[in-house]
Simulated scan of single mutants.
Amino acid sequence: MTALKPTDAQLREALLAKAQARRPGTTFCPSEVARDLAADWRPLMEPLRAMARELAREGRLQVTQKGEALDAEAPWRGPIRLSLA
């Protein structure tokens, strides 16, 4: 765990690494990545969601909520799950 705020590149790498480590078809919560990166993980949630949106726009990650795919351009509210696209 690091005391410094992770860079965008580190957030991107951490999200992709977590997605690639999962079995195909399984999802994860961005909070799992946040907890891996920092003891005080809650401040990382919005930056991780923003990076997940960017990765979804690039076609690298799929973002779902209650099993339904979310549009990367639409507003997101509530808990999301991530997986490789």
Rank of each mutant, 00 (worst) to 15 (best):
L16K: 08
T7D: 12
R49T: 04
R12N: 05
A34S: 07
K18P: 10
M1R: 14
R22I: 03
W76L: 08
E54C: 07
M45Q: 15
E73S: 09
A85G: 09
M1F: 15
L16G: 04
P6Y: 02
D36G: 14
A9F: 10
R35L: 13
R42C: 00
E54H: 05
A17D: 13
E73I: 01
L16F: 00
E13C: 00
A72T: 06
R23L: 09
R35K: 15
R60T: 01
G59H: 13
A85T: 06
I80V: 04
G25M: 02
L48S: 02
A14C: 04
G25D: 01
A69V: 12
P75H: 01
W41L: 10
L55T: 08
E46H: 08
P24R: 11
D36Y: 10
L48G: 01
L4T: 10
R23V: 00
S31M: 09
G59M: 05
M45W: 05
E73M: 06
L55E: 06
F28G: 08
L11Y: 02
K66H: 13
V63K: 00
R77D: 09
W76P: 08
A56P: 02
S83E: 11
P47I: 09
P24Q: 09
R12L: 05
L44Q: 01
G67H: 11
L37M: 00
W76D: 04
A21C: 05
P6W: 00
L16S: 12
G78C: 10
L82H: 08
R35S: 09
S31H: 01
L61G: 05
P43Q: 01
Q10G: 00
T26L: 12
E73Y: 00
L44N: 06
A50I: 04
P24A: 10
L15H: 09
L37N: 01
A85M: 06
I80F: 05
L55M: 02
T26H: 13
L15C: 03
L82Y: 02
P75C: 09
A56Q: 02
K18V: 04
M1C: 11
T7A: 14
A17I: 06
A34T: 11
E68Q: 15
T26E: 13
R81N: 14
E32V: 15
M51T: 12
R35I: 11
A72D: 03
R81S: 15
D40F: 10
P24M: 05
A56E: 00
D8G: 14
L84K: 04
A9N: 12
R12G: 03
A69M: 07
R77G: 08
L16R: 13
A38N: 07
R35C: 07
M45H: 13
Q62K: 12
M45D: 04
P24K: 09
Q10D: 14
A19M: 08
G25N: 09
A85W: 10
L84I: 05
E32I: 12
